[in-house]
Simulated assay, not measured.
Amino acid sequence: MSNEDINQSLKLFIVLSRAYRAINENVNKLIQTYGLNPTEFAVMELLYHKGDQPLQQIGGKILLASGSITYVVDKLEEKGYLKRVACPSDRRVTFAQITDAGKEMIESIFPNHEEKIHELMSELSKEEKATVIELVKRLGLSIASK
């Protein structure tokens, strides 16, 4: 392993980190205009697209510490966007379920969210996006298996 290889790996790390930060900051600003924080939006998006979710599993699906989930779910429940539903077959499990008001809210904001992400990614062609997806996915999977 040469110094050049090491320097290139470090540069890749910095470039990926800065790109992620820039994208995330832009998207988070938009999310805040909806009266949500990024974590609340992530929970709402998960429930909208994947249906009812056990509270214990939400954190792992949106990359959030499980202790924070209760707080986020409480806030979304106060806003009327979701409700807790007991599992009929296992009293230890409680599901988060999106409400009609929550569906209405996410359906009204998600098209704008999609458009913003598309706009942020528009620097790359369709083919370049496919290449980046393939390479970054490969990198992530190789790291996860170590």
Rank of each mutant, 00 (worst) to 15 (best):
residue 93 V to C: 03
residue 128 E to G: 09
residue 104 E to K: 13
residue 91 R to N: 09
residue 115 E to I: 04
residue 96 A to H: 03
residue 122 S to I: 08
residue 14 I to K: 15
residue 54 P to R: 00
residue 129 K to P: 01
residue 130 A to L: 11
residue 68 S to V: 00
residue 22 A to H: 14
residue 19 A to P: 10
residue 96 A to N: 07
residue 58 I to K: 00
residue 87 C to M: 01
residue 105 M to T: 12
residue 15 V to K: 15
residue 127 E to H: 07
residue 57 Q to M: 03
residue 28 N to G: 06
residue 78 E to Q: 12
residue 75 K to L: 03
residue 123 E to R: 06
residue 127 E to P: 03
residue 45 E to K: 12
residue 35 G to L: 02
residue 14 I to F: 14
residue 72 V to I: 09
residue 75 K to T: 06
residue 133 I to A: 10
residue 28 N to Y: 13
residue 46 L to Q: 05
residue 80 G to M: 07
residue 136 V to R: 05
residue 81 Y to G: 05
residue 26 N to S: 15
residue 77 E to W: 03
residue 70 T to V: 02
residue 47 L to R: 07
residue 50 K to R: 04
residue 17 S to V: 08
residue 12 L to K: 14
residue 34 Y to T: 09
residue 95 F to I: 03
residue 84 R to G: 05
residue 114 E to H: 10
residue 62 I to G: 04
residue 96 A to Y: 03
residue 58 I to L: 04
residue 21 R to F: 12
residue 121 M to C: 13
residue 18 R to K: 14
residue 102 G to F: 03
residue 46 L to H: 05
residue 107 E to R: 08
residue 83 K to P: 00
residue 55 L to S: 03
residue 145 S to G: 10
residue 12 L to I: 15
residue 139 L to E: 08
residue 81 Y to C: 05
residue 50 K to S: 04
residue 12 L to Y: 14
residue 30 L to H: 13
residue 42 A to T: 02
residue 34 Y to W: 14
residue 67 G to I: 00
residue 129 K to W: 07
residue 54 P to Y: 02
residue 9 S to G: 13
residue 46 L to C: 05
residue 114 E to P: 00
residue 136 V to E: 09
residue 59 G to L: 01
residue 10 L to F: 13
residue 31 I to K: 06
residue 87 C to Y: 04
residue 32 Q to H: 13
residue 107 E to H: 09
